[in-house]
Design a protein around this nucleic acid. Structure first.
Lengths: 137, 137
DNA sequence: CAGAATCCAAGGGGATACTG
DNA sequence: CAGTATCCCCTTGGATTCTG
């Protein structure tokens, strides 16, 4: 028999599962919209096209690295478009693509659920914390 | 005048924005369901109550640490319930709470969008990669 | 069986400086 | 203005070991 430890089998299963997860479109979408900045950028663009500096100001807490990285990945996925105007100081405008626009209703639903139920979650959280830990810092 | 560097102002803005983000229910919900294992556990429980070991087997690639951690946070948020049966080997059953059940339709919508549009995303991705990088490994 | 505790490696993400 | 490149910290998460 193949002398195979439990951890080896575990590792193998993990790999197969990772592949399965990577292939799952739901997982991919979740990974995309769950990014800290993605939804903020998308929301910012929902009001209309924005320049890079506008986005930078509107989202405030974001670093150039993250903003650029987020915009690149969104552009790559066809959710936002990037238009360069080669004026003297370069000008770049970002906008939602039609595909990106179809994603917004989903975010709206999530927003609704959150607004309707997040207080229940908060209550459950408080109850849970108070039940065992007594004193929560 | 207050001698304040740009980075100081940036840092301040970032802090304020972090607070804003932390307070936003949408952000909280996204942070929750975007977790790699949360949706898997939730989906596994959608078919009915499951024991700890059952979940461990069904989700396969998960480590005890992550499974336990995920279940704890979900229990804390009132999305899953935990029932301990003090038999000789302890038995613990997890199940979706009513609140947790109301979350499933959202995941279904996400799943639908993903299944309908993920090929467009994939196409956009391929086009983007082929346009600039020429050779993609 | 169900879980807590510890150790440790990899990667995400911020700050900074430089470029076209 | 709109990025790119670099350094570096600190969190995330897997493997392992020990308990009730």
């Amino acid at each position: 028999m193949t002398t195979r430890t439990a951890s080896e089998r575990r590792a193998e299963a993990a790999q197969r599962y990772d592949a399965y997860l990577a292939a799952c479109p739901t997982r991919q979408l979740l990974d995309r919209i769950s990014d800290k900045w993605v939804t903020l950028v998308l929301s910012a663009l929902a009001g209309g096209p924005q320049r890079y500096s506008d986005l930078s100001r509107r989202i405030a807490g974001v670093s150039q690295k993250m903003l650029t990285q987020t915009l690149r990945s969104l552009e790559r996925d066809g959710l936002v478009s990037r238009a360069v105007t080669p004026s003297v100081p370069v000008r770049v405008d970002y906008a939602l693509t039609p595909l990106g626009s179809t994603l917004m209703p989903l975010l709206a639903h999530i927003k609704e659920w959150a607004e309707h139920h997040m207080d229940e979650v908060a209550a459950a959280r408080t109850g849970y914390d108070g039940a065992s830990g007594s004193a929560a810092p």
